[in-house]
């Protein structure tokens, strides 16, 4: 039996038994052929070792029967409702992306102004350079955090888009979190910690520097006229 013959019999039998995700199953066997062919085996040998395609198809039927009936039920309800929900989430995510983008740019410019002592239009309150550096670092961390969150949101949107555009048959389950997403989350956690650390350090140093717990009074912020 050649690869084509094997796949044709398996495919026909899977369809006859009305087994869901037949394409998914077929692709596993196709890869099996590819790996074995690369090892130098002939199609005949591979097919013979795989076993009888009719018997294999029957095993897919026997194993997943209970699950299939469950899936049939959820297929009636889930895709329609869930896809509307997913589409709405996409709109919300797009808005959140814009917010994160704006936040990243805003915090970045604040941090540049603080570092460079650029007091444009007197917007920044007066403070000694050492406090400015610490607050600038906190702001930079916040900017990076917003940037990472933006990338994360993009990844979520891409996943949702893929879910929405794929045929409902193949993707009843939501896509699992990819390794990149997990990594992004770890980065966001560390950035948040860095932000908090610099913010508290900045406040602490400012209190020490000004000699007053409410250092903003000493430096005349918010129109207190120190």
């Amino acid at each position: 039996m050649t690869e084509c013959e094997f796949m044709a019999i398996l495919s026909a039998e899977l369809n006859k038994l009305k087994i869901a995700d037949a394409a998914d199953i077929l692709s596993e066997y196709k890869q099996h052929f590819a790996f074995k062919l690369a090892d130098g085996l002939s199609e005949e040998e591979i097919a013979q070792k795989l076993g009888d395609p009719l018997a294999l198809a029957a095993q897919f039927g026997a194993g997943a029967e209970s699950v299939q009936s469950e899936k049939g039920w959820s297929k009636l309800k889930a895709p329609v409702g869930f896809k509307i929900f997913a589409a709405l989430s996409l709109v919300v995510l797009a808005a959140v992306c814009i917010v994160f983008c704006a936040a990243a740019l805003a915090f970045l410019s604040i941090s540049i102004c603080l570092f460079g002592q650029l007091n444009i239009a007197g917007l920044l309150p007066p403070m000694p350079f050492y406090s400015a550096v610490l607050f600038a670092a906190a702001s930079l961390a916040l900017s990076a955090l917003s940037g990472t969150a933006l990338v994360y949101c993009f990844a979520l949107m891409r996943g949702l888009l893929r879910y929405l555009t794929s045929s409902s048959k193949a993707s009843d389950e939501p896509a699992p979190f990819s390794k990149t997403q997990l990594k992004l989350r770890a980065v966001m956690r560390s950035l948040l910690i860095i932000f908090a650390a610099f913010l508290f350090l900045g406040i602490f140093v400012s209190i020490l520097g000004s000699g007053e717990p409410e250092f903003w009074h000493a430096w005349g912020w918010f129109g207190y006229g120190g």
Binding site: Y29, H32, F35, K49, L50, G51, Q59, F60, G63
Partner: peptide
Amino acid sequence: GYEISEYLSKHINIADGTVYPILRKLKS
């Protein structure tokens, strides 16, 4: 999938194709 199939057929005398229905069942 293929690695699992190779591992099993190395140790136990079964048809290579048997592992895929098992994987699917365990997943379901």
